[in-house]
């Protein structure tokens, strides 16, 4: 099985003494949709930022698409990140740009070979792909709903046709209807492009187990269990069972 992301013995400390990530090993198979779950403070967001190259491991190696990230210079990293798309928890739209301009932004930055009309055409098609109606294209992010902001954020993440899409807690803070809409959007986006690798950090166990091909549960800075959703339901690990029980009960 070919891997899109490989973490080898990754350790991370912010102060030199206490380690948030403690020798983590993890693989994300290429073309799969993988969910990373775990209690708060177990290092989910930290590990996501390692995959994105925003943090450098104190020790260990982070390989993404066959490239060890610590070997890249700042400039090379900037270039390399064009292969990623990220949907942030808050959508992270630029509030002084319209919806269409937000989606055009990565194209303006990296596809200077395209004309303005071509960029608009691509951005509009991405917005339609995520189900955003044209009447919202020229609105500012503050003028659209949370669900529409997520759609716009996803359209922006898709603008450069990335090889990997990361979802950072995509449904946190959303109501059940919006949560389901975002979940369906993630699934349809993943299925729309064969070979696309998707990594989702989530607290939402329903979504994680419904959408993901593989799930990794983190605990105390390490991978406690990695496997298919069925592997989790069949696991007799006490922490896993406690987490599942709490997660599904809460839902």
């Amino acid at each position: 099985m070919e891997h899109a992301i490989v973490l080898k013995e990754v350790w991370k400390s912010f102060n030199g003494n206490d380690f948030v990530i403690k020798g983590m090993n993890l693989v994300v198979p290429r073309g799969s949709l993988m969910a990373i779950i775990g209690f708060s403070g177990t290092g989910k967001s930290v590990i996501l930022k390692h995959m994105l190259g925003l943090y450098r491991a104190t020790r260990g190696e982070v390989w993404v698409l066959g490239q060890e990230l610590s070997q890249l210079s700042h400039k090379e990293m900037v270039e390399f990140r064009k292969k990623f798309g990220v949907l942030f928890q808050s959508a992270a739209l630029f509030d002084d740009l319209t919806v269409l301009e937000n989606v055009c932004f990565p194209l303006v930055e990296h596809r200077r070979d395209l004309s303005r009309d071509e960029m608009i055409k691509i951005a509009a098609s991405k917005l339609r792909q995520v189900g955003l109606a044209e009447e919202h294209f020229f609105k500012l992010p503050s003028e659209i709903s949370g669900g529409m902001q997520k759609r716009t954020g996803l359209a922006r993440a898709l603008a450069l046709d990335p090889e990997i899409i990361f979802y950072d807690e995509p449904t946190t803070g959303l109501d059940p209807v919006l949560t389901e809409m975002v979940d369906d959007l993630i699934l349809s986006t993943h299925r729309s492009r064969p070979g696309l690798t998707s990594v989702m950090i989530s607290h939402d166990l329903h979504a994680a187990f419904r959408l993901a091909d593989y799930v990794a549960m983190l605990n105390a800075g390490q991978v406690l269990l990695f496997g298919t959703p069925d592997d989790f339901f069949n696991s007799d690990n006490e922490i896993v069972q406690k987490f599942l029980a709490k997660g599904f009960k809460k839902k």
Partner: peptide
Amino acid sequence: VNEQMDALDVMGVD
């Protein structure tokens, strides 16, 4: 704090 800088970073914008 709204993650817009992280968004710029991961979009490959210095």
